[in-house]
Computed example of a mutant assay.
Amino acid sequence: MLRDLTDDQARAALPLKWGEVAPGVLPAWVAEMDLRLAEPIEEALVEAVRRGAGYAAFGDGGLGAAFAGFARRHWSWELPDDACVPTGSVMGGIRLALEALCPAGPVVVPQPCYPPFRDVVAVAGRELVTLDLDPDATQASLDLPAVERAFAAGARTYLLCNPHNPLGRAWSRDELAALADLAGRYGVRVVADEIHAPLTLPGARFTPYLTVDPRAVVVTSASKSFNMPAVHGAQLVLLNEAERERVRALPVPAQHTWSSLGIAAGVVAWRDCDAWLDALLERLDGNRRVLADSLPAALPGARMRPLEATYLAWVDLRAYGVADPAEAALAHGLRVSPGRDYQPGLAGHVRLNLATSADRVREATRRLSSALI
């Protein structure tokens, strides 16, 4: 079901992840998978290109119904077929939500965070309020007391990553309900990035944020779970029909930012690729076990909370006294993402991509150990 890429194939298929490293360097940084597209998606894209590459028509091309079907099968979430408004990318959708749907006031972004979360707040002309989560906590949390202080001080939007990148948490329903309660009390709009939702791993459970807070805006896409970042086809999920119409009626309609290829690929991914996704989750579950077994042996001082979702391991290497272990790793033939990208000033952390072969995961651990010991 899964088709692995050789090193040479990966350099051709993933020109950023593999093409931006020197020969012999193992890339485990950018959030892409060392896998070919699922065959139904590949076939849908080839067919769409043969038809032409025109603008997408107004409407969603069946994307909303396909996503609603996926949500029903995987999360028992009954979502209307017309709840989605297509947009180009998840970050473009978040910017659209900030500019068109969120109240005036500062925007709360917990850290560590996906770096563009900070950037999009600035681009939207909003004040950024960052909340640094405790790196020493046994389990990563939303730190609701700090969130409430930010809301009480005037913040009116909260950017939620559900599940979280890079912490790998699938937030519980109780945690999300408590956040929703705070948001309701202070008149805060939550914008939830749920692009990693299908990548919730065995033993954990994904809770769609809209099921605890119907006022929220969710932005999601099939691009991450089905390894097609070049195909822009994200969607806003809004339960309020009037707000969906408001977005569709903007002077520069959201329809002009999405791709007909993205819609074609997204429909097939949400509708026809459950078996491929099941095989992927089995692979990722195996690779997190490989890392859990090999990391303590190679780096006894390393600390990593159990990975509940995503294929991105957040590893605390402060015990080795190296401020930037990512820089040290690169000198030993491994590229990982430095923790400071996700939280400026945070030393001793890296993000490690596990969406590859088990052998590459073991080799990444070996090279990381060589860099630090």
Rank of each mutant, 00 (worst) to 15 (best):
L5H: 12
Q9C: 03
R11S: 07
A13W: 15
L16G: 08
L16H: 15
V21N: 11
W29T: 03
W29K: 04
L35C: 06
E43T: 14
A44K: 02
A44C: 07
V46E: 15
A48E: 11
V49M: 10
A53S: 14
A53K: 14
A56H: 09
G59P: 01
D60W: 11
G64Y: 15
A66Y: 11
A68L: 12
G69F: 02
R72H: 12
E78M: 10
E78L: 13
E78H: 14
P80G: 04
D82F: 11
V85Q: 09
V90L: 07
G92I: 04
G92C: 12
I94T: 02
I94M: 13
I94E: 03
R95V: 13
L96H: 07
A97N: 09
L98K: 12
L98V: 08
A100F: 01
A124D: 09
G125K: 03
D132M: 06
L133Q: 08
L133R: 15
L133D: 02
A137M: 11
T138Q: 13
A140G: 06
D143I: 05
E148F: 07
E148G: 03
A152F: 10
A155P: 00
C161Y: 14
P163D: 13
H164F: 13
N165F: 15
N165A: 08
G168N: 04
R169P: 00
R169Y: 14
A170I: 01
R173D: 05
D174G: 04
D174I: 02
D174F: 15
E175M: 08
E175K: 05
L176E: 04
D181L: 13
R185Y: 09
G187A: 06
A197R: 07
A197Y: 09
P198F: 12
L201F: 11
P202D: 09
A204S: 15
P208L: 08
T211Y: 08
P214S: 10
R215A: 14
A216G: 05
V218Q: 13
V219K: 02
V219H: 04
T220S: 15
S221W: 04
A222H: 11
P229G: 07
Q235N: 05
V237C: 05
L239M: 12
L239Y: 06
N240F: 09
E241Q: 13
E241F: 04
A242L: 03
R244F: 02
E245T: 10
E245S: 12
W258A: 10
S259Y: 14
L261H: 15
G266F: 14
V267Q: 13
R271I: 06
D272F: 04
C273H: 08
C273E: 09
A275N: 05
L277V: 09
D278G: 12
L280D: 07
L284T: 02
R288I: 01
D293P: 00
P296Y: 06
A302V: 00
R303Y: 13
L307C: 09
E308V: 00
A309I: 03
L312F: 15
D316V: 10
D316S: 12
G321F: 00
P325Y: 07
A328D: 04
A328Y: 01
L330N: 06
L330W: 08
A331M: 07
H332I: 00
L334M: 08
P338K: 03
R340N: 05
H349N: 01
L352D: 00
N353S: 08
S357H: 11
D359N: 10
R362V: 01
R362P: 01
R362Y: 08
E363H: 09
L368T: 00
A371E: 05
